[in-house]
Each structure stands twice: as C-alpha cells, then as structure tokens.
Simulated scan of single mutants.
Amino acid sequence: MAILIKSPAEIEKMRISGKALRKVHDAIAPFVKPGATTMDLENVAVRKIAELGGIAAFKGYHGYPAALCTSVNNEVVHGIPNEKRVLNEGDIVSIDCGVIIDGFYSDAAVTYPVGKVSPETQKLLDVTLASLEAAIQKCQIGGRLFDISAAVQQMCEAAGFGVVRDFVGHGIGKSMHEDPQVPNFGIAGKGPRLKAGMVLAIEPMINAGGPEVRVLKDGWTAVTVDGSYSAHFEHTVAITKEGPRVLTR
C-alpha cells in the first residue's frame, strides 16, 4: 500500500476543487423535490461544473455515463441519472459527485429527503451523517486508519442499521481512487498510522436493514438485498497538523 502524502500546496489545490464541488452540491439542492427527475439533477450539475471551469470526475470513469450518481431509496451507490426516474414525496436520494480542478480531485455525497420522510428514514439520514462527522474527528496525526472505520460502525450498528461492506472510502488526490481503502467497519487501533498530508474520501454507506447489497444488470447500480432504504454521506478530508480539514465543507 503506497499512501501518497500531499504537500500543503497540493492540499490547497484540493481545497479549491472541494470548494467548487460544494458549489455544485449547493446548486443541485433546491431541485431535489417531488416531481423532479434524477436527470434534472444531472443537468444542473453539468451546467454548474462547466460554469466553474471544472471537469466532471465521474463521467467516463471506467465507462460511467454521467456526472452524478443519483441513488434513490434502496439504491446504495452508483445510481445512473434517468429522465424517467421521478422523485416522489417520502423518497430519499443520494447525490454523489466528483470534480477535477487543476488536476486535483474532490469527492462528496449528500443524501437528501424528498419532501417529508418518515421518522425512521429521517433517523437513518441523521445517524449516517453523524457517523461521518464522528469519523472526521478521528482524522488525527498518530491515529490509526481503522479508528475512522470503527467510529462509523459503532454509531450505525448501535442504532440498528447495517454497514455496507462491499463499498468503501478511499484516498484521493491526482486520482479519484488512491490508497488506502477506508472501510466503514473495523477495529479501532488497527491499520496504517495516520500522517499529515494524507487526504481521504470518507463515505459511510448505511442501510436501514441488513448490510448486504447486489449490483443490478446495468453493471453500476448497487441496491440493498432486503429492499431497505440506504443513506450515503461523504467528505474529502485532509489530515493536517491543525487537525482534520474538510475540503468539501
């Protein structure tokens, strides 16, 4: 495992990329409402990325056809935007996006409620987001990688939710996926030592039911095996001497 350490100048470039990505997410958010299609969201993202002078990191990556992943309800990750996929009251939709600015990647995901959702669904969103924040706080020099993983697992399993094993977070920089992999499950105190200059895409993927997933015939869309809803939140985080720096905040 070759974990690439970024210089302060490189982290600053990644912060600029992350700031642009946050603007993309902010542009999409008002359009997440009943009656919108996932392709409507894609079109907003494509326009905003172009306006910011960026490149859509996902489009063409291993053949992926879109700028966004829009995963609805029981879709865990990698849902493909579609003009026929209409969002309805009570749905949730995970919007995952990556941007390249000046050769540096940023990656972030938010799961939105569509209109009013059930209390059970809102709890899934709240706990998943809280687990991401808990994981970010573990991004401290001298800690261990699986301190991050354990923070997610402990919080989400304590709430009765399933932690996805098939997909994990990752290092990020001049490539979308770098070492190390960042699982959302693991034993605290294990894994590589955390060092200044590491940049990680931390992304809890949490199911209301069991952790098992399967990939549909499109070769991309992952869904929960039991049909339960799934939430996904992600930030790109740099480990610095001052503590964790969230580049996509």
Results as ranks from 00 to 15, higher is better:
M1Q: 12
A2R: 14
I3E: 04
L4H: 15
K6M: 09
I11S: 10
I11K: 11
E12K: 15
K13Y: 02
R15Q: 10
A20T: 05
L21N: 08
L21Y: 03
L21M: 04
K23E: 13
K23V: 05
A27E: 14
A29V: 11
V32W: 00
K33W: 01
D40Y: 08
R47S: 11
E51R: 10
E51V: 06
L52H: 07
F58L: 14
K59S: 00
G60C: 09
Y61N: 10
A66V: 03
N73R: 13
H78T: 05
H78W: 03
R85Y: 01
R85M: 02
G90M: 06
D91P: 11
V93F: 00
I95R: 10
C97D: 04
G98H: 02
I100D: 02
D102Y: 03
F104G: 07
D107K: 03
T111R: 02
V117N: 06
E120R: 12
E120Q: 10
E120K: 14
T121P: 04
Q122R: 15
L124Q: 14
L125T: 14
V127S: 11
T128N: 09
E133S: 04
I136F: 01
Q137L: 12
K138A: 06
C139V: 09
C139Q: 12
Q140A: 13
R144H: 15
L145Y: 02
I148N: 06
A158C: 02
A158E: 15
G162F: 02
F167Q: 12
H170L: 00
H170S: 11
H170D: 00
H177V: 15
H177N: 12
H177G: 00
V182F: 05
G189S: 13
K190C: 07
K195Y: 08
G197D: 05
I206M: 06
G210P: 07
L216F: 06
K217T: 10
W220R: 05
T221A: 05
D226M: 04
D226W: 04
D226G: 08
S228R: 14
Y229W: 00
H232W: 10
V237I: 06
T240V: 08
T240L: 07
V246K: 07
L247E: 01
